[in-house]
Nucleic acid binder design. Structure first.
Lengths: 190, 190
DNA sequence: GCCCCGGATGACATCCGGTGTCGTCGGTTA
DNA sequence: TAACCGACGACACCGGATGTCATCCGGGGC
């Protein structure tokens, strides 16, 4: 599709992740990445908004995916059931089979504060999408916000647990984590 | 205490916030801030780790504050009661009387993605501190993590609600928000 | 089969955030 | 009074990020 080698975006991502693993995120410069990929610095920023985004490609589709799931869910379903359904779809459709890559990715992210900030931002974007899905379904604002936050918490904590062990599917673990959250909150305050 | 004008840090903060409000965060350069404060660029970065941090001064003490609260709480208290106690202390001790400043601060933060990332990071640091407080108390890891997350969610959503209205104390609103979260999660999944 | 257009990249300049380093000077303390 | 320390200035420098224009290929229209 061009006069250059194909898959520029993918080459950039691979080169970047490799270098991050080899020598660290902060110690890797964009020129180093582009040199390995056979491209120029300017081209890197045409594909990724910034140096961090290269570790989050693919995730930009989550919000839209969740929005669709929620719009398609039967109106009779309660908030948490809707969330569980949406998150299970993402878990099974996107993360299944990616456990090893997700582990190396996490090991890189945990070495850099800026990357952890970006990860929180992505989870927040997911929460925002879920909240808006609820508003579309006529759920009141506070319930929508809190249900979305709870779901994302279960998802985030679930991913951590999933990466820390070798068995169990992400979908199951997320569901289990959500149950644990219910139990914790069910305990009387005083 | 020196041959220069006093309160360099505070002058920098004031100059920065003023400029952010006047012309926006991204459009304000560090040299502009230091020029208004009568200092040099290098000095700005001696007081703040980066340009964003100027909007988060004071919050670095929250984790330590919560840790102390949790260590001092009676061992008989349940997780959510402990959290509620700690958050109420922060709410009353730090935020009371700051509603107007917090509103302008929020209006600046919401104009910049990087600032919102940093805000999430601060909440995450608070969550981390609460979690560690629970671990010290002998709570199991999962419960500690989830209770901390739930508390921070209530705190974050509570601050939003507090800023969106004119009456009610932050402590009350946080407590109310946590109750709402319990109610949402109490609903059966199917 | 030719031509032109559009998309993707290169090349270059530039800005700004952030850091390392050293010099300077006043206040503090012995 | 002399030595020290802490806060700031001055300067150089790196790397991330962006604007702009040139370039070149492939495809579609004719």
């Amino acid at each position: 599709m061009g006069r250059w080698e194909p898959d520029a975006r993918d080459r950039l991502k691979r080169a970047a992740v490799d270098l991050f693993v080899e020598q660290g995120f902060a110690e890797t410069t964009v020129p180093q990445i582009t040199a390995r990929a056979g491209l120029t610095t300017r081209t890197f920023f045409r594909h990724f908004a910034d140096k961090r985004e290269v570790l989050f490609v693919g995730e930009e589709e989550f919000p839209a995916l969740v929005a669709k799931m929620m719009a398609d869910a039967p109106p009779s379903l309660g908030p948490m059931a809707v969330i569980l359904h949406g998150l299970r779809t993402i878990a099974e459709g996107v993360f299944e089979g990616q456990r090893e890559y997700m582990r190396t990715r996490r090991s890189v992210i945990q070495t850099d504060a800026g990357l952890r900030e970006r990860e929180l931002w992505k989870l927040s974007a997911l929460s925002k999408a879920i909240r808006e899905g609820f508003l579309e379904r006529g759920v009141d604002d506070l319930t929508a916000t809190l249900a979305a936050q709870a779901g994302v918490t279960a998802f985030g904590v679930g991913i951590t647990r999933w990466l820390d062990q070798d068995d169990g599917s992400l979908a199951e673990i997320v569901r289990d984590t959500l149950d644990a959250l219910r139990t914790v909150l069910a305990e009387p305050v005083e």
